[in-house]
Design a protein around this nucleic acid. Structure first.
Lengths: 188, 188
DNA sequence: TGCATTTACCTAAGCCTTTTAGGCAAGCTG
DNA sequence: CAGCTTGCCTAAAAGGCTTAGGTAAATGCA
């Protein structure tokens, strides 16, 4: 009975990697057990159930993404900050499609309120300091940006933009140009 | 052995309703069999497997949504068309969250190419006729609109905007104002 | 109308995932 | 080194997916 050294932390990290390989939907307690060469039941000391595992992966991804975003916007402002921030979301979705899908998972309100999701909206609002928006327009804009980042990443992952001109890269820069212009001239 | 009259069509419709009730992820061949008061194996004459069922629900939803969108934009142009079109997406997501989730499902390329998804992008492009965009900007704009509709609907369903001011209704109209303004002044 | 064909639904069975209950031994704590 | 905690185990139940092969209801054709 060699002990492998399972911890909730290690399971979640491995779950995140598994998600990137096979898709978040396909993350299963059984597969994770297989990867640790351990019996399935053994995971249940570290994780409440399958749902709990997925929620933890989602929280992990939100955290990781928020950290990257924070790094990216440090010392930047205006369009420079907007682009750096937005690129973090898109790059994350392409590097880590499973984690990104996890980050989009529906969380119950209390869990969401305690998650790094809060940091995400705070950072988005911080980006808007480079533009001249007052409430409630700032909130509207935060929601618009969230929708675009979220939506673009998930359409791109679904293959929506592949194999057709213009390439996704170009569309992305043009969308960011457009959003920058929009934020500078937000209609009242 | 009373025959219930199963058909692929009826299964898919029932599956769509089930999705709206319990969530698309929770749609299961077993539950569907239960609803028709039929043994699980019986469904396998009408549907290849669970994946096939879900794909068919997705295609059904895309079709239904495209029909509604087509109705909405008939006889409209400019901002009027944009708003009517966008509202179809948002309303569909709120009335039929399960089907809307299905419509967001990742399809393999050939299936996607044969789906009503094609009509969706054609209609989006048609909306842009009311604005002065030439290629490749029109394509960029189509992708932006797709991202926003997709993203907003999924964030709203996830409860992202609930219980905080301003309400989602107001944000939505302001976002449409903003998109209209943006399309009229697309940066080059 | 009666027979043949098709087919809608069934039973049976195997496999996989999830989850709980209870046991043993590995490794820290003193 | 004795004792406690706990990490991982076996066992088992319950439910979902899927295939193979059968029976009877519906359909079609003479």
């Amino acid at each position: 009975m060699a002990r492998v050294g399972l911890t909730t932390e290690r399971l979640v990290r491995a779950g995140a990697e598994l998600a990137d390989e096979v898709g978040f939907e396909q993350v299963t307690v059984s597969e994770l057990a297989r990867r640790f060469d351990v019996k399935v039941a053994s995971l249940y000391s570290h994780v409440k159930n399958s749902q709990d595992l997925k929620t933890r992966i989602a929280l992990f991804a939100l955290e990781e993404l928020a950290d990257r975003a924070a790094d990216a916007i440090a010392g930047r402002a205006g369009k420079d900050a907007l682009v750096a921030f937005a690129d973090v979301y898109r790059d994350y979705g392409r590097e880590h499609p499973g984690r990104a899908a996890a980050a989009r998972m529906r969380l119950d309100p209390e869990t969401a309120a305690a998650s790094a999701g809060v940091r995400h909206s705070q950072m988005t609002r911080a980006i808007l300091r480079g533009y001249d928006l007052t409430e409630p327009d700032a909130t509207h804009a935060v929601r618009l940006l969230g929708s675009v980042f979220h939506g673009y990443s998930s359409l791109e992952t679904a293959g929506g933009f592949s194999h057709s001109a213009p390439d996704s890269e170009e569309t992305w820069t043009r969308i960011l140009d457009a959003l920058d212009a929009l934020l500078r001239n937000w209609p009242t």
